[in-house]
């Protein structure tokens, strides 16, 4: 039995969504994430940037939020939620290698960082 974890469908559809949303992975380096989010404000007209991180990456996301909140003086809103992901279980002993898919809920945090400083 092998478990393949699929990521949720996070495709950003619109251009404005792409330029104002930042998705944090566990492998995202902290400082470069902060720099990239900061740069987003200079490139978009919108005054809010959304930063999302799910599962293990939540801690890092909150850390980023804290940096913007405390050190850089932005006003940050914190929101929580959950997202549905798919798990694929492959039975390798079976010759057909048929997979079974199962749904699972994963928590996420969302930061809404506003341009106007405190």
């Amino acid at each position: 039995m092998t478990l393949i974890k699929h990521s949720p469908n996070t495709t950003l559809k619109t251009n404005s969504e792409q330029s104002t949303t930042f998705l944090v992975k566990l492998s995202t380096p902290f400082v470069s994430a902060v720099k990239r989010i900061d740069k987003m404000f200079t490139r978009t007209r919108s005054d809010t940037v959304v930063v999302k991180g799910m599962g293990k990456a939540m801690e890092k996301t909150l850390g980023i939020g804290g940096t913007f909140d405390d050190k850089l003086g932005y006003s940050v809103g914190y929101y929580t939620g959950s997202v549905e992901v798919l798990d694929e279980v492959v039975d390798e002993e079976d010759e057909a290698h048929e997979s079974v898919y199962k749904k699972r809920m994963v928590s996420y945090v969302e930061l809404r960082i506003r341009k106007d400083r405190k």
């Binding site: 469908n9 549905e84 798919l86 997979s99 079974v100 898919y101 749904k103």
Partner: peptide, 14 residues
Amino acid sequence: NSSDFTNDLIIRLS
């Protein structure tokens, strides 16, 4: 919700 129907669809197809 878009992810809802996608996951259901994939489970159904599998």
